[in-house]
Design a protein around this nucleic acid. Structure first.
Lengths: 235, 235
DNA sequence: ATTTTTTTATGACTCAAATCATTGTTTTAT
DNA sequence: ATAAAACAATGATTTGAGTCATAAAAAAAT
């Protein structure tokens, strides 16, 4: 799980340069640098498990991670996707509970661990960071509640179209215009909240309707307007 | 909508005595007292609408409120229930967006409005309050994500059992042991995420199975263990 | 008090999407 | 290279839960 390698430097990390930790002072950044503990995780590895006690917060320097809950028959429901620059494991840490979900690596990742004490110290002394954290939680909550409503009211096809656009937005596109991530049909199903077979079927429907194109393992959105229309989003 | 009446005193309000605002200083409580603006709302009235710009936060002194999103064909999805002592409208205020849901009164309510400036001032100067707010948002997020997973994976019957237990816990019970709230089948359906007819059917199933009893307009949980079992909760 | 409206209750029917089953196709491991 | 495992694709079948329709009961309005 962990291995010897040169640790990322917080000062150059996009979590600091362009994300939550951008309001940290120079002193705080160096404190974080000395307190943090970084690890390399390979695809498939677990960063933390549902039920574990949080001991700090994770900061993702590189890689792609999924946060999911495991239902009755072992089926995953993906709650959030996490990429470089994002933090991870803050919800349970802040509410002082055990993790309510599991974090697993989708693409090899470099992740730094910041101890609880350090993080809480920053939170108490840096009101900018507190504000950022509240905004992050508020954003997550908005997302979760929007998905909740969609799950209760929209058919799978619409949710699928929404998820594809979300993935395109979240991961960005490569030179060929494909979504910059390799995600299995099963993972897509577990985001949308449907069966894998249904996902496969709808994706090939979208393909025949020329809404998307399947370039190797990757998905390219061909007709953005068409997808918006099938997702029934009018704003 | 608004009417003349004696405003509640913050110092005696349970939002201060036993909830989010318990970490406010005496000076802050009196500031809130002079800055706040209280109104009485009748059942059915709207406190704010999806799309409105938040100008402050609402503090519920009395009454029951539902927060919901309106889907395609006008169907409501209830996101959160709000009762005396709770605050309302904080998510959008904090993330600086328009309201993503509508707040409507279920049982006549007395609600105080605290202007944005005052609330943000408290937040910036009182790190205890910031912590409380982060914990509140974290709790909401946990709830939302758990419901999300349930909606994606559990059949209606199980979700219905869960919701009944949640209502029992949230509103408490009266002398007869019934849930201390009058909620329409439609509202229950819009919490569970199902059709009204399905809710009616499952409730009468539960009744014939002696899991619940319908006392007038109210619901009494008769067999808590049985409900837990049908909800498939094993912890 | 009586009409109107809303809420609850049930039955009949339909359909979206899950499940089950099989085969082809990549990846990964040996 | 070849075996094994994981993933993707499609067809056939089943079913949970939605919709539509109608009626009874309860609340609200006149």
């Amino acid at each position: 799980m962990k291995s010897q390698f040169e640790h990322p430097v917080c000062d150059e990390c996009i979590s600091h340069l362009g994300n939550v930790f951008c309001s940290l002072t120079g002193a705080q950044i160096s404190e974080m640098d000395s307190e943090k503990n970084c690890s390399i995780y390979k695809r498939g590895q677990i960063i933390f498990n549902e039920g574990n006690k949080p001991a700090g917060v994770y900061c993702v320097n590189k890689g792609k991670i999924k946060l999911f809950q495991t239902g009755e028959e072992g089926k995953e429901q993906i709650l959030r996707l996490v990429k470089e620059g994002d933090i991870l494991g803050y919800r349970s840490l802040i509410s002082g509970e055990v993790y309510s979900g599991t974090a697993a690596v989708m693409e090899d990742a470099t992740v730094c661990f910041i101890p609880k004490r350090t993080f809480f110290d920053f939170l108490h002394t840096n009101s900018d960071l507190s504000t950022k954290m509240m905004q992050l939680l508020s954003h997550d909550l908005k997302e979760a509640e929007a998905r909740l409503t969609g799950l209760a009211q929209k058919p799978v096809r619409e949710r699928m179209a929404e998820v594809l656009m979300m993935l395109n937005e979240f991961y960005g596109t490569d030179k060929e215009g494909s979504i910059n991530a390799v995600i299995s049909r099963e993972d897509i199903a577990n985001i949308v909240g449907t069966a894998t077979e249904t996902t496969i079927r709808i994706l090939s429907d979208f393909k025949s309707e020329k809404l998307i194109e399947l370039v190797g393992k990757k998905i390219r959105i061909n007709n953005h307007q068409g997808l918006i229309k099938t997702a029934h989003i009018f704003d």
